[in-house]
C-alpha cells in the first residue's frame, strides 16, 4: 500500500468529519459543498481500493492476511458513500452528524489498514 494515500484518506476523512460536525453544531443539514467533499474522500477511498487490489495482484501480501485486508478496503471505500446517502434522506443536523461519524469510522479503518498491511514496511 502507499502510505501517503492512507494518510491522505485518513486526514481528509477527519477534515470531513470536523466540517460536518461543525454543520451539526450549527444545526444545518449537509449541503452541496459537503457532498463535493464527500465525493473527494470517496474517490480517494476507491483509488485506495483499486491500488490495494493491484498490489495484491502483483503478488504482495499484507501482514495480517489478504481476506482481512480486502474486507477493510471494501469497508473503507463504502463508508462515506453509505453515510452520504443516509444524510441525503435525513435533511436535518442529524444527517450531518451521520456523515461526521462516517468520517471518524473511515479514519479508524485507515489506521487498521495501515497495521494490516504491515505498518510502513511496504
Amino acid at each position: 500500500m502507499i502510505d501517503a494515500l492512507t494518510v491522505a484518506v485518513a486526514a481528509t476523512a477527519l477534515a470531513l468529519a470536523a466540517w460536518c460536525g461543525w454543520a451539526t453544531y450549527r444545526d444545518q443539514p449537509t449541503k452541496d459543498w459537503h457532498f463535493i467533499g464527500m465525493a473527494l474522500v470517496s474517490l480517494l477511498g476507491i483509488a485506495q481500493l483499486v491500488i490495494g487490489c493491484v498490489q495484491l495482484a502483483r503478488g504482495q501480501s499484507p501482514d495480517e492476511g489478504t481476506a482481512i485486508f480486502v474486507a477493510y478496503l471494501l469497508g473503507a471505500s463504502a463508508c462515506i458513500p453509505a453515510t452520504g446517502f443516509m444524510s441525503l434522506s435525513e435533511r436535518t443536523r442529524w444527517g450531518s452528524a451521520t456523515v461526521a461519524a462516517g468520517g471518524i469510522v473511515l479514519a479508524v479503518l485507515e489506521v487498521r489498514l495501515f497495521d494490516i498491511w504491515g505498518g510502513g514496511s511496504a
Binding site: T98, A101, V105
Partner: peptide
C-alpha cells in the same frame, strides 16, 4: 430511524 435515530442506525449498521 429519523432525526437522532439516524445516527444510531448508522452506528448500529457499522
Amino acid at each position: 430511524g429519523t432525526g437522532p435515530g439516524r445516527l444510531l442506525v448508522t452506528l448500529y449498521g457499522v
